[in-house]
Amino acid sequence: MHNIILLLLCLLSLCTVGCDENTDMRLATEAGIDAVRAVALTDKAVQRMAVRSSAYADSKQRVAPATSKYARRLQRLVGDHYQTGELTFNYKVYLAQEVNAFAMADGTIRVYSGLMDMFTDDELRFVIGHEMGHVAMKHIHKKLRIAYASSAVRKAIAATDSTAGEIARSQLGGFVKVLLGAQFSQLEEKEADDYSLIFMREQGYAAQAAVTALKKLATLGNNHSFLSSHPAPGKRAERLQQQLEGKAVSIADQKKGLWEKTKGAVLMVVNLLLGLLRWLAGLL
């Protein structure tokens, strides 16, 4: 249903420009292609796009050389966490004062030196685990679809001979920026937090650092660029603290509990129906 709605919205944007004599048909066609891709992205297509997007992002930043104190520290922190099941991760540091980090669907994880300056080792491990979680749970796949849908809408606008079209044309090269700026849902953030908390515990790292890391992020303010795609750190910190104290459970455990309750209710209904059928058969 989500895919159908997404496609309809994209196609609607195209219909608004399709019959205008001033429409740029090449751009309109590209917009239509992007709209379809947004819905039909395969895992292989996501991987290819992620590799290209990662390379583009790296080309726009100053990547820390292996001899840098930041690169050496990151290497020490990630240890042998380069392979998890079928997932392969790669890590680099951007030498920039910005407090930021992001992941791509191909396992790319980038951490800014500004974030490293702000966090302790275990707090950084939590952030790294969080980004790993977004990859493992395919949250980036959804972000790619959002970025493609945004691209389709921009091209549909750019296809018209208007002021809005001129503005949109200037943004056609901003796919990666749209991708990195697409916000995760609150559920996705919680799932990534849970993934990282489990990661911290399994590896024997100080799990309490998950809470202190989020509290530090909360001091940046709601308008900070990192929080545009990683919202509500204060509430997330409270939630993880509840888990550490045994007063709350992870999203996965909540889903498991809900499934057990649902399964029990379904079995009860089935048994009642079977009993009713046997009673009716006895009457006949």
Results as ranks from 00 to 15, higher is better:
Leu7Phe: 13
Met25Lys: 15
Ala28Glu: 07
Ala28Gln: 07
Cys10Pro: 00
Val17Gln: 03
Leu9His: 10
Leu11Phe: 10
Val17Lys: 01
Leu11Glu: 13
Met25Val: 13
Glu21Asp: 06
Leu27Ser: 02
Thr23Ile: 02
Cys10Lys: 04
Asp24Phe: 00
Leu7Trp: 08
Leu9Gly: 10
Leu6Asp: 07
Asp34Ile: 07
Cys19Thr: 06
Leu7Cys: 06
Glu21Lys: 05
Gly32Lys: 07
Ser13Pro: 00
Leu14Ala: 05
Thr23Tyr: 02
Gly32His: 11
Leu8Cys: 08
Leu11Ile: 12
Leu6Pro: 04
Cys10Ile: 11
Ala35Lys: 10
Ala28Cys: 13
Thr23Ser: 09
Cys19Ser: 04
Leu9Trp: 06
Gly18Ala: 10
Leu9Gln: 13
Gly18Asp: 03
Leu6Phe: 11
Glu30Cys: 08
Leu9Asn: 13
Met25Pro: 08
Ser13Glu: 05
Glu30Asp: 13
Gly32Tyr: 08
Asp24Pro: 00
Leu8Asn: 11
Asn22Lys: 01
Glu30Met: 14
Ile33Asp: 08
Ile33Phe: 10
Thr23Gln: 03
Cys15Asn: 08
Thr23Asn: 03
Ala35Gln: 12
Thr29Val: 13
Glu21Ile: 04
Cys15Glu: 09
Leu14Asn: 03
Ala31Lys: 05
Leu9Met: 11
Glu21Cys: 02
Leu7Glu: 13
Glu30Tyr: 14
Ala28Val: 07
Leu14Met: 07
Leu14Ser: 05
Ile33Arg: 12
Met25Thr: 13
Asp20Lys: 02
Leu27Lys: 03
Ala31Asn: 06
Leu14Thr: 03
Val17Ser: 10
Asp24Gln: 01
Asp34Ser: 14
Ala28Thr: 08
Ile33Tyr: 12
Ala28Asn: 08
Asn22Ala: 01
Cys10Ala: 15
Arg26His: 07
Met25Arg: 15
Ala35Ser: 15
Thr29Trp: 14
Leu27His: 00
Met25Phe: 09
Asp20Arg: 02
Leu7Asn: 09
Glu21Met: 03
Leu8Met: 13
Ala35Arg: 10
Glu30Gly: 02
Asp24Asn: 05
Met25His: 12
Ala35Glu: 11
Thr23Asp: 01
